[in-house]
């Protein structure tokens, strides 16, 4: 099992860096090219949500990502330190446009639609989002 850990200041500019790192490691781990876009988007959503939560509650604290190659799965865990509650269900009503203003809920809905295995653990000390995708057994050769 190989793990890469990354921490970054809660700044929007760093979310793109986190996406790029996650996509590069997913490719190395053997995640199929066809689903790399899903990895990139889901990791970006989780990091964006964490950055927004930190900016509200604890701007000085870093956001943490763990990227793990574990028994044929590529697993990503994004952990923040901002107090959080269970995400509310996201519902679109086209008649009255009741799309939630809190886009954090939309972000979790997107993650749930992208990763085939997602676990969202809110808590008073922060939220932990773990998601994973299938990967080739021993990844692809390093370039």
């Amino acid at each position: 099992m190989a793990t890469v850990e990354l921490t970054f200041s809660a700044l929007p500019a760093h979310v793109r860096t986190a996406r790029l790192v996650a996509t590069a490691i997913a490719r190395r781990t053997g995640v199929a090219e066809a689903i790399l876009d899903e990895v990139r988007l889901a990791v970006g959503e989780a990091c964006s949500r964490a950055v927004e939560a930190h900016r509200l509650h604890c701007p000085g604290e870093p956001v943490r990502i763990e990227l793990r190659d574990d028994a044929g799965r590529f697993e990503v865990t994004v952990t923040d330190s901002a107090p959080s509650e269970e995400p509310k269900p996201y519902i679109v009503d086209m008649d009255d446009m009741s799309v939630p203003d809190e886009m954090a809920e939309l972000g979790v809905a997107v993650i749930a639609g992208l990763a085939d295995d997602v676990e969202v653990q809110p808590g008073p000390k922060g939220m932990r989002i773990r998601m994973s995708w299938p990967a080739a057994g021993n990844g692809i050769a390093a370039i």
Partner: peptide, 12 residues
Amino acid sequence: DFLDSTGLGVLV
């Protein structure tokens, strides 16, 4: 090239 839920929120 890339659109996330923040972008969706702006469009909404």
